[in-house]
Computed example of a mutant assay.
Amino acid sequence: MLEKIQDGQKTGQKEDKFRLVIVTGMSGGGKTQACRYMEDLGYFVVDNLPPVFIPKFVELCKHAGGHVGKVVLVVDTRSREFFDTFVHILEDMNRDDVPYEMLFMDASDPVIIRRYKETRRRHPMAPSSRISEGIARERERLAPVRAKATYIIDTSELRKADLRDKIHRIFGTGEGEQMNINVLSFGFKFGMPLDADMVLDVRFLPNPFYIESMRHKSGAVPEVADYIAQWPVTQEFLRHLDGMIDFLVPQYIKEGKSQLVIAVGCTGGMHRSVFIAKHIFDRLGAKGYPAKLEHRDLMKNDVREHVREEC
């Protein structure tokens, strides 16, 4: 058996190819948010599964040819009468040496009451009475399950970012968990990208469009890039830009952001925005951040360039 842990300290358990995590706990304790973070880690999440179906579901997953390697089953008191079999199912799994981990999500009574007040939802254990009564009934019913928990996380004082860190620390593998960074060049005349987190307007930089020999070449062409880069205003801007990128990206990662879209716009999305977006992309690569580069409107200017790169 795994050592029982409080507040998400990880055990030295050897990770199997198939990993089964059962998530349970108090209504309003943070199960939904925890499962969202586990989905981000690549877990297949099944919500509100009656306990009696757990053994059969596990068997199906193990015979899925490796397509389902990490599974989260959410089991709680919403199962109503089915929930009474939960402890017996767990005992059967222990007896049959079925490996699993159980995460119990909890919070203090005042915090749970406040959360229910904010959402205006009924407590599943007290649909027609006071929330406090439902909490008391649920705690009593969950006591035997809580005693079997592998991990217990109390979210009473946790921010979402703190909960995410705990989930990643316990259930993450370190693979594919970095923030996805997309650097996008675009032309304002074609509209701003709706999914951008940060928009840089570089229309103040010298425009190669007015140089006949460069008009139909993109900002990725060395001749055009050298033209834009030679100006003092460009050099000063890049100094400020590098400092901002170097500062902001670690802050976003620390905050738990899973995706960052940096959009760089000029008039047509062909010269200046392409040059600056490529500069940001290269800067991120030099710092070791995985990033993608896309020139959204380059083809609209009838220029045949590579529109996507990865590092």
Score class of each variant (00 low, 15 high):
residue 5 I to F: 03
residue 7 D to Q: 12
residue 12 G to A: 08
residue 14 K to R: 15
residue 19 R to C: 03
residue 20 L to M: 02
residue 24 T to W: 07
residue 25 G to V: 00
residue 32 T to G: 12
residue 38 M to C: 02
residue 45 V to G: 00
residue 50 P to Y: 01
residue 57 F to H: 03
residue 58 V to N: 02
residue 59 E to K: 11
residue 60 L to I: 14
residue 63 H to M: 09
residue 64 A to I: 04
residue 68 V to I: 13
residue 73 L to P: 01
residue 74 V to D: 05
residue 75 V to A: 00
residue 78 R to W: 00
residue 86 F to Y: 12
residue 87 V to S: 08
residue 94 N to L: 13
residue 110 P to F: 04
residue 117 K to S: 12
residue 121 R to H: 14
residue 123 H to K: 08
residue 129 S to L: 11
residue 139 R to W: 12
residue 141 R to F: 04
residue 146 R to E: 07
residue 149 A to N: 15
residue 154 D to I: 05
residue 161 A to Q: 14
residue 162 D to C: 04
residue 170 I to N: 06
residue 178 Q to G: 07
residue 179 M to K: 04
residue 189 K to S: 03
residue 192 M to P: 02
residue 194 L to A: 01
residue 195 D to H: 15
residue 199 V to Y: 09
residue 200 L to V: 10
residue 200 L to R: 00
residue 210 Y to L: 03
residue 240 H to I: 06
residue 240 H to Y: 14
residue 245 I to S: 13
residue 245 I to C: 11
residue 245 I to F: 13
residue 248 L to C: 13
residue 250 P to W: 14
residue 251 Q to P: 07
residue 259 Q to R: 13
residue 264 V to H: 13
residue 265 G to P: 09
residue 271 H to S: 04
residue 278 K to F: 11
residue 280 I to A: 09
residue 280 I to P: 10
residue 293 L to I: 14
residue 298 L to H: 09
residue 301 N to R: 09
residue 301 N to D: 01
residue 309 E to W: 13
